[in-house]
Amino acid sequence: MKKPKVGIFDFACCEGCQLQLANMGEQVLSLLGSLRVMEWREVMSETWGKKLDIAIVEGSITDPHAVERIQRIRRRASVLIAYGSCATIGGVNGMKNNFVFDEIRKYVYGDSYAFFPTEPTKAVHQVVEVDYFIHGCPVYIPEVVTVLKAALQGIPYYVPDYPVCVECKLNENVCMYDRKVTCLGPVTRAGCNSWCINNGNICYGCRGMVSNPNEKGALDVLAKYGIPTSLVVNKMNMYNKCRELDEP
């Protein structure tokens, strides 16, 4: 089989998900053995600029330049993988959408703010078509490998459409709510093997919400534990603000 040509691109993000690839350890060698990396700004200086079999896109789309650039990448790539929360759900960059844009542009760029146009933060699929989603902040390497293998085989990858609680129970963690701590696991989609909770942290909802959350039931649960709804909405918006752009 001919090795597929791959390009790795970044938009508004911390580039930490790309770093996760470099963090893979030995597995990165077998990964590189089955791909031809043509462009990857973070780790190489060569560029390619032609057709790609797979484009891996990190980061969210936040200004007009980014919109043009992602459209060009989409035209060049047979398969496009949204990589990391910023790309798949808008991620933390979505918090910008809570503010009046002129005010925050002045806050960030001072007097010359007019030279820096901005747009509501969008996830990649809210601008161009996306073939595969690898959620997470950062991405979970075993899932990255699974999705890449699916892309290499040309078969779909189904992101688990059930809450993190499932994996958390399988890992036999003591529930965060029993520890009197608020956790977004019950409404966040799984696939990370409850990575954060296994290590004593809470779930921050970085993978986005399940497709059919029981919002009324969730409110009842919050009331039972005496947690204000606004607190959870704020927590949820840290990663999931762009979700409202998905709604018809």
């Binding site: 059930y162 609680c165 499932v166 129970k169 019950p186 409404v187 029981n214 039931g217």
Partner: peptide, 13 residues
């Protein structure tokens, strides 16, 4: 139906 969060805890345990 109104209360269940469909988290699967009941069946996993």
């Amino acid at each position: 139906n109104e209360r269940c969060l469909a988290c699967g805890n009941c069946t996993n345990v």
